[in-house]
């Protein structure tokens, strides 16, 4: 399988994602330039963190209109797995591939530190290999990570099991002090209706090697790889 990592000019986690996928997981990786219009040959896609076009406007707002985005939409529509990390999550919400918005942190400051998240759904490629209630340690590094949505959207997300990750303490308890940025219902990550498009604020690629303090994030990538491997025969059948 081949992973695609979209390179927006102001992305700054693209190289980190490529390193983890290529050197840690041993996967094939293609860097997809933001001006490209095709995702041919890509099996799973990562929208990495950073400041895609400087983010002087709302984070991700410009990236949502990038030349590559029609191809990203088509890829998502065809059921291809897409993971948006941090700025990638912001881009997915701006592109309306995921519901809700990411507002400034409650502290009104950029925050960089480890957090814990609890797995709330395994109905996505990135969590299919995990268990409900698993607690993952990963760092956050963002100024605009407060996930907000209208109450009816939040209710619908909860009802449909589309909340994928929730901020929690080291023991998995969802407590107010563990919510780093003021996200509604402590939501750290959500999925689209099909479960194939997932966005989250913490950085799994920064927690994919024990040397960096945690290897929990690697499980998301490994899960997607296993999910694709299991799906492959069915997909090629459907494509005929």
């Amino acid at each position: 399988m081949t992973w695609g990592v979209v390179v927006f000019p102001g992305a700054n986690c693209d190289r980190d994602c490529v390193h983890v996928l290529r050197a840690v997981l041993g996967a094939d990786v293609a860097e997809v330039w933001h001006a490209d219009r095709s995702l041919d040959g890509i099996d799973a896609l990562v929208l990495p963190g950073g400041f895609s076009y400087g983010d002087y406007l709302r984070s991700g707002a410009v990236a949502a209109t990038a030349a590559v985005m029609p191809a990203v939409r088509a890829f998502a529509a065809s059921g291809g797995p897409v993971l948006g990390i941090c700025n990638g999550f912001q881009i997915l919400t701006e592109a309306r591939l995921l519901p809700g918005v990411l507002m400034r942190n409650r502290s009104l400051r950029f925050q960089c530190h480890p957090v814990w998240v609890r797995v709330e759904s395994t109905a996505t490629p990135f969590t299919a290999g995990l268990r409900l209630g698993d607690v993952l340690e990963m760092p956050i590094a963002h100024g605009e990570g407060a996930y907000l949505a209208p109450p009816e959207t939040l209710d619908a997300l909860e009802a449909a099991g589309r909340v994928v990750f929730r901020y929690c303490d080291a023991r998995g308890r969802v407590v107010a002090s563990a919510n780093p940025n003021g996200s509604a219902a402590a939501i750290a990550g959500v999925a689209n209706a099909a479960g194939t498009v997932v966005g989250l604020m913490p950085h799994p690629e920064r927690a994919s090697e024990a040397l960096l303090g945690s290897a929990d994030g690697r499980r998301l990538f490994e899960s997607a790889a296993a999910w694709l491997a299991a799906r492959r025969p069915a997909t090629s059948g459907a494509a005929r």
Binding site: C13, R15, D16, H19, R109, F110, C112, P139, E205, R206
Partner: peptide
């Protein structure tokens, strides 16, 4: 102070701020 700085981007930071010295791989 240092929580306002992204100190983990680049996935090189092995010893983070707050210790005697930072270490990058």
């Amino acid at each position: 102070v240092y929580q306002q700085y992204d100190h983990s981007v680049g996935i090189r930071t092995v010893v983070r701020p707050g210790d005697d010295a930072a270490v990058l791989r």
